[in-house]
Design a protein around this nucleic acid. Sequence first.
DNA 1: GCAGTCAACTTGCGTTTTGCAAGTTGACCT
DNA 2: AGGTCAACTTGCAAAACGCAAGTTGACTGC
Lengths: 144, 144
Amino acid sequence: MNSSDEKRPSGCPIAFGLDVFGDRWTLLIIREMMFGEKKTYGEFLAADEAISTNILANRLKLLESEGIVDKRRDPQNFRSFLYELTPKGYDLAPVMLAIIDWSGKHDKRPDRLTAMVERVKNDRDGLVKQIQQRREDAAKRSSN
Amino acid sequence: MNSSDEKRPSGCPIAFGLDVFGDRWTLLIIREMMFGEKKTYGEFLAADEAISTNILANRLKLLESEGIVDKRRDPQNFRSFLYELTPKGYDLAPVMLAIIDWSGKHDKRPDRLTAMVERVKNDRDGLVKQIQQRREDAAKRSSN
DNA sequence: GCAGTCAACTTGCGTTTTGCAAGTTGACCT
DNA sequence: AGGTCAACTTGCAAAACGCAAGTTGACTGC
């Protein structure tokens, strides 16, 4: 799938976004890359929520075809691949932060002050700057 | 489903949010209420993207059980119901705006400057204030 | 240079979710 | 009382998902 194979040709920007990342897993994979600094297929598989391997492969392929994720060989370990966000992928940071804010406010289960919520509360600017920096690094990478 | 029937007990705020609205339709229904001022089942059905009736009924039920949507009889037309966002629902506005921003930036198809993208670009503050006002109205409604 | 391991997938298959169409229920209207 | 309208509900075929097992290509050690 890419943007020209539209599932919903409505022209609405919400629908456009949902066509790309409106499912249960895509944003969790992006989370691993954006906040968790995870980069390999195996690391994504090992993440907390236990995505199944065929779904992971499918989503990574879609994200790559959308230009949200970049895949390359790991120079240090040539049998492994590195998946990294492109600038377009890092541009999803505000969406991620908004979701974290909403969940931090409305998750009423006990003991749910997670590290991520805390970090956004205590040092949002630092986090945003860090992501901004990585976005620039990604931009340089792709211009080489 | 509600928050205590967790699909993914990871404690991650992204996963928490996705458990609530991480599918193809939920945020589109919320969009109708937040920006389109649509309130009835029939109006949601008639929206651009043509959600099917069983999915719509299911999602409205879930949103109600999550406390994101409030359902009541239409005082003017007693055979109809009004679905309206609760304050918790209006708190999703930053998520919606972030998605609109991202799509406005990255939807490369021609002729895709939609009304919503334009409005957010040209009068974001006015839009935010309007939603804030409606959120307060909703808060008053529920305290009665 | 062959045997084993590791990382990244792919395939098969049963279960769940979705999507379309048609049917039901409860107001309201005449 | 007969018809319409709004809001669902039900049935069933198609698609997506989730688990487990198998395959492929790169490195590693003997």
